[in-house]
Design a protein around this nucleic acid. Sequence first.
DNA 1: CCATGGTGAGCAATCGTTTGTCTGCTACCT
DNA 2: AGGTAGCAGACAAACGATTGCTCACCATGG
Lengths: 357, 357
Amino acid sequence: MAATGRYDCRVVRLVDIAKAAGVSVSLVSRVLNDDPAARATEETRRRVRDTAAAMGYRPHHAARALKLARTNTIALAVPVLTNAIFSELLRGVEDEARELGYTLMFARSESFDEQRQMSQLVEEGRVDGFLLQRPDDETDESLARRIGNAPVVLINSVLPGHPGSVMIDDHGAAALATEHLLSLGHRRIGLVNGFQTTETARRRGAGFAQTLAAAGLDPELSPVTHFGYAPESAAAEHAVTEIFGDDRPKREQPTALVVANVNAALAVLTCLRRHGLGVPDDVSVVAIHDAWTAEHSWPPVTTVRLPVYEQGQTSVRMLHDALRGIAAGDTIIEEPPPILVERESVRPLRARRTAPR
Amino acid sequence: MAATGRYDCRVVRLVDIAKAAGVSVSLVSRVLNDDPAARATEETRRRVRDTAAAMGYRPHHAARALKLARTNTIALAVPVLTNAIFSELLRGVEDEARELGYTLMFARSESFDEQRQMSQLVEEGRVDGFLLQRPDDETDESLARRIGNAPVVLINSVLPGHPGSVMIDDHGAAALATEHLLSLGHRRIGLVNGFQTTETARRRGAGFAQTLAAAGLDPELSPVTHFGYAPESAAAEHAVTEIFGDDRPKREQPTALVVANVNAALAVLTCLRRHGLGVPDDVSVVAIHDAWTAEHSWPPVTTVRLPVYEQGQTSVRMLHDALRGIAAGDTIIEEPPPILVERESVRPLRARRTAPR
DNA sequence: CCATGGTGAGCAATCGTTTGTCTGCTACCT
DNA sequence: AGGTAGCAGACAAACGATTGCTCACCATGG
């Protein structure tokens, strides 16, 4: 047997099994694939299966993909991999992909650009389709071009004219966070939100605003910022400066903050401290999304946990359906519902250190 | 044109270009691949290239992989993706992979097991080889079985008998952290280390111990724990309890801690607080590896930054060499050297709140 | 006794590329 | 003028798996 390169890669092929079992290649293929057209005695089938197992046969992926025009591989493309929230999504995606027989390939959205479109993965026959979480700063036109007409399910994002988005209950999560603060007596609440261009920010902003309105509060007293979540950038600093800076009279400053993303919340904590504001003594903080980092910040952050694992599962199922020609509409994961995880970054308003009323 | 499924996937093939340009398939292939055996006039070449570009030709990956027995794809398998340190490694791997013409595929080490061996990826012809960071809790035998005889470069780990590991300067990093604390007057220093079975923990432990020994210190005063880094587990709690628990007389407790991993350091901060120990007032903390989370903890953690980006690059180059039959030995990335990033978790010993000596 | 049909299995084309070999043709040398 | 060298390009066989079709054999029924 010839070795390819320095590694002894003699792979077992159908023809090897056929020879060993004394049957034809096509019969081996049919038996191993449980093809109903396979005409063989039970004894022959067993012999084929046994020799295949004994020789350690693995179907050659490229050959099969070439013949079937199907790779049984899907890609998951997200803006950043190193994100504690993403790990939940990944678990769901991975579990469901395995369940449905897909191999999973990861990619960072950023590793694609005008040169290297994502649709290339499909055109080149590397993957059948992909799950995509849209980067915050990309225009509709650019995204549409990168997607081409490849089968795509969008995660936490939408594209006008594109069917198949999977969202979570951003509205409900923001409402739950806001209600929690309201129930503790807070009346001036700020929202540190993501970029206004993103669908999640819109939905979280709406949940926040509607909850305040339902409580009969004046939106003027509820500052909202839109600087995104990236902890490396000065996003949090901008947000905190805008809300607690000198432009705003002290007595109009919020006593509590809803931060639309737990990673951003960690940066917000640092900035609040720099501004001389204590958490929770001066400002209470609730973040949307739960992650292990929220437990290890100071103070540990109260969060709203969302069903991200289930979102991952559903995304794969939707792509699977799309690949089989079953059109899918947009989906919002509402089960299980958002849950409040109470930690130490929140305190009732009356217990504030400086101003009891 | 027939559409596969509901998506219009008419891919452009060589034969389409050949027909359009009025030449044979083989000539198109040769021209597009710059095959020196291509015999064609400059004019023909241009015509072929132009029509290929105009028709948006993408070579079909599976067909090429089948013919060439080479995928130009490598996989990166790490225990956890959601790790701020990993993002640096990933950047390096991705950049170098693109440079050398490889497509990158990610996998979590955990998604492989006795059923689904990693070597399957190679046997099935999905990837040419992979980069693997060994999970902390796997035995040599199990790992060797999962790898099979596939081309693998190990990252931050070793396997007896396996050539080709890429390490960073763990020894130097631990030494630098320890020296920093020594230079500030600390004499009783603890090490919160990873599992004793891992190579990185051994090397960091050695750097720590040698530095202390060189300073003429008694190792008995330097407690070392081996509970790993996972922030979800009780690893940090075990470590802090072992070092600062009641078993150890108060006066023998360390005044400073080297934590072998920045993620673990965040958990350690939380545990120290729970034990009533202030950082840096009662205990100074230096962590190995730098990450954005270290800036946003309380207090921000002093770290040792390591050249993880370069490690990623080198790993890909080593795998590339191995695939071309160039045997590679083990490598330690020593350039650039470890750098101390000073933040607020460290204070000179004489300035301690409680004990001036 | 012949037609029919079911059973067990093999033949051969095909997926899109690559690559060794072959075929004309022109031009040049002697 | 005949032989040959060199050039432009086509032909065809792979790579490994899938699948429609064919084929031989045997039993059964009319």
